[in-house]
Design a protein around this nucleic acid. Structure first.
Ligand SMILES: [Mn+2]
Ligand SMILES: [Mn+2]
Ligand SMILES: [Zn+2]
Ligand SMILES: [Zn+2]
Lengths: 145, 145
DNA sequence: CATCAATTGCAACACTGTTGCAAAACAAAC
DNA sequence: GTTTGTTTTGCAACAGTGTTGCAATTGATG
């Protein structure tokens, strides 16, 4: 619980989300870490307290309200990262624009690298590119030190 | 069946894969298209002829033998693309090196763009990048014409 | 043909994600 | 504070994907 109870509630209210127990606790989990969390991460950390369906619905809602974003890593695992606080490799309050995701091969964590630019890429004639997603793999700051 | 029966068998034998019925038919499907196929694509095209588990095992084996590679798109769907023949946007016989995948928002197909370079990206200090995966989204050559 | 190894199909299972519905919690009005 | 209507939650059920174990089949080899 690194964050103040009241700050969590304030963030929820700012997005017109009713601050219920499960919502406070899930948002608190995101604010406590600087990497992405999977549904099962969250389910385990809140062991037995809430139904898994409610967690799915909460995550979907947080996504719609812009509090978190969904990340599918290249092994197919879905995770979610907070937009505020610890979700980023630097202390940006928001990193809602397109950015690179870094997956550590050692600890498995996914970090949002919002401080580096997404490069431009030209696609072959005939293709019309709208979005470019980048994901890196390697060893994270913590595991390499 | 764009390809010769004998060519399929030759490719299988070259990788020391016994040319059984299901293997010939699956490899033939890959050689017939220039985009990636999902397990269920394959299962449906070979309707009722083979067990789904055998298809999974065949795909895994083709992957290990270097005939196809696995692609997880950013919505979490797993597909497989052939290394030879039509799997690529240009007629490379092999494109086993790292390359960009393009997903068409209209038809849903995934194409391997092996003719364009994967850019270099610098990650923040402390991170050690080993692989960089790129996936583009937009409108494919066919759907935009 | 007999033998042994590889391949296949089937049953069962785990995991992820979704939907419908009824109970509970909550906010607003009386 | 009680009634009323809306949101939220939990539960049951289900679909899709992928994996494993095992027995039956197929195929290669002598
Ligand atoms: Mn991110
Ligand atoms: Mn490819
Ligand atoms: Zn790590
Ligand atoms: Zn298309």
């Amino acid at each position: 619980m690194a964050e103040e109870f009241n700050e969590i509630i304030a963030v929820l209210k700012a997005q017109h989300i009713r601050p219920t127990k499960i919502r406070e606790e899930i948002l608190n989990l995101f604010f406590d870490v600087n990497h992405a969390l999977s549904h099962s991460d969250i389910f385990l950390k809140l062991k037995n307290k809430f139904d898994r369906v409610t967690i799915y619905r909460t995550l979907e809602m947080f996504g719609n309200k812009g509090l978190i974003h969904k990340i599918v890593d290249n092994s197919g695992v879905t995770k979610y990262a907070s937009h505020g606080h610890g979700g980023c490799d630097v202390n940006f309050k928001h990193h809602k624009t397109n950015h690179i995701h870094f997956k550590c091969k050692q600890c498995g964590n996914i970090y949002c690298l919002c401080s580096i630019e997404v490069p431009k890429v030209d696609v072959p004639a005939g293709y019309e590119m709208q979005v470019l997603n980048l994901s890196a793999e390697g060893i994270c700051k913590i595991c390499s030190s």
